[in-house]
């Protein structure tokens, strides 16, 4: 009796097992197909933040490369406040106009005020002090007197000399 009852049970068990095996095979197959398409299984990861971050870091490294103490893209000296200056001062105008100028704190502040009044510069908040400190520290006025001596003379032999 017991054996008679066991037989259908065995069939059911085998049937369930087979179902499981087939399901697993289908799932594994599906996974393999997916693997072929997307080996990183990126769909199951959080929004692509880590990859984007890596790329952005590389771009930033390239864009803000420092060589021999100089921020290559702008020519500004790598010192405290550099990126505050780059971020706030080189959107509207080139860093070349900064590099050309030598002013004290009052006159840099006056220049910023002029930019706010006429050039659409916004309030710089606490960045203003950082910017002005960077400028007066790294680009202080040079005293050149009433007339400088001629420097950087490019000497050459003058051959043709007729008017």
């Amino acid at each position: 009796m017991a054996k008679k009852e066991d037989f259908p049970n065995l069939i059911t068990k085998i049937y369930n097992l087979m179902l499981l095996v087939i399901s697993l095979v289908i799932l594994a197959g599906g996974a393999l197909v997916y693997y072929a398409i997307d080996p990183d299984f990126s769909v199951f990861q959080l929004p692509s933040a880590p990859i984007a971050a890596t790329e952005t870091v590389n771009e930033v490294d390239e864009l803000n490369k420092i060589e021999n103490g100089i921020h290559v893209r702008t020519g500004l000296v790598d010192a405290e406040g550099l990126m505050t200056v780059v971020n706030n001062c080189t959107y509207c105008h080139s860093a070349k106009i900064i590099l050309q100028n030598r002013m004290n704190t009052d006159r840099w502040n006056a220049t910023i005020k002029w930019m706010q009044e006429t050039q659409n510069l916004g309030d710089l908040g606490s960045n203003q002090e950082v910017i002005v400190n960077y400028l007066v520290t790294n680009y202080p006025p040079k005293m050149i007197g009433r007339r400088e001596i001629l420097t950087n003379i490019d000497w050459y032999e003058l051959k043709t000399n007729n008017n």
Partner: peptide, 26 residues
Amino acid sequence: MKRRDFVKKATLGSLATLIGAEIVFG
């Protein structure tokens, strides 16, 4: 140090931050 701060900030942002436009003129 400053540079690393900036890099960290930039990873969270877009190109606009990279070129430094965001703070005043973005």
